[in-house]
Amino acid sequence: MTGAAGLVAPEVGIAIATANGGMRTYSGAAGAAVNAASQGIQIAFHGKDELDPAHIGNAFVTSYVTFGMGAVPNVLTNVGSSIASDMLAKPAMSATPPDRVAAATNAVTNMGTSTLGYYAGDIAGEQAGPLAGAIATEIANWISSVGQKRILPASNSTKEK
């Protein structure tokens, strides 16, 4: 069985990496890279404590899964992954999860930001689309997070050191 699994695993990895001519992997990597860079900027200039691996992983998975989908499936996948990240992944990783109101607010804003990112990527074209979409989504996320902090200041506090 170990031998069979060893034969299957490389083929699965290759199939995943080369899906849609490698564009799915490129899309996932672009989403994760832009998210990590965004968090780095927030750490450097805005007092964020540390990188959030759940957000980076979420950015990779949603960008990978939604590559080539239409706007509605793309947005619904992003909203679903936002809820899963906030309510399941963060508590499992011992990160400070948001309360339910903040998680719902994150889901609603992700609906808008992922729609913007989808159309920005669509306009940019197939090669530049994943990166342009990820950048547009992240910029919209920054803008929405400022609004969320003003509307829900208590539920968006950072972890104490």
Results as ranks from 00 to 15, higher is better:
Q148T: 00
M93I: 00
S82A: 12
T66R: 15
I83H: 11
M1C: 14
I151F: 10
I56E: 04
S157A: 09
T77V: 14
D99Q: 00
K90S: 02
N20I: 14
A15T: 09
K149S: 02
A120K: 00
G28Q: 10
Y26Q: 03
T25R: 14
K159L: 02
T96C: 09
D86G: 06
A92P: 15
H55Y: 09
D49M: 03
S63G: 14
K159R: 09
S85C: 12
I43C: 05
T105L: 08
I151E: 09
S114M: 08
V108T: 08
K149V: 00
A104W: 12
S82F: 11
V75D: 05
K161Y: 01
M93H: 07
I83M: 11
Q39M: 06
V34L: 03
P91G: 12
P53Y: 13
T109W: 04
M1K: 14
M69K: 15
G13W: 09
A103G: 08
F60K: 02
S155T: 07
S155D: 02
S157F: 03
S82D: 04
P98I: 06
S27E: 06
P153H: 03
A104D: 13
D52Q: 08
A154N: 02
G70E: 04
M111C: 13
G40Q: 14
G21M: 15
L51M: 05
S63T: 07
A9G: 05
T62N: 11
I135S: 10
I16P: 11
Y26P: 00
I16M: 07
T62Y: 09
G117E: 04
V12L: 03
K161H: 08
K161D: 09
A132R: 02
F67Y: 07
S85D: 08
G6M: 08
T105F: 06
K159D: 03
S157G: 07
A132M: 02
V101S: 12
N141A: 15
V108M: 07
A54E: 01
N110A: 11
T62I: 07
V108I: 06
A124V: 03
A107R: 02
D122T: 02
S114P: 14
G147N: 13
G125Q: 01
Y26R: 04
L152I: 00
P91Y: 09
L88F: 03
N35E: 01
A140Q: 06
V101I: 14
A136G: 06
A5V: 13
G133A: 01
G40F: 15
T2L: 10
R24N: 13
I139M: 00
D52A: 05
G22L: 12
T25H: 12
N106C: 10
D122G: 03
F67N: 04
G6Y: 12
A19F: 15
M23H: 09
H55A: 03
M23R: 12
S144I: 08
N110P: 10
N35W: 01
G40A: 14
A54L: 04
D99I: 00
A4S: 15
I83P: 12
L51D: 00
A33I: 13
E160S: 12
G28N: 11
Q39W: 05
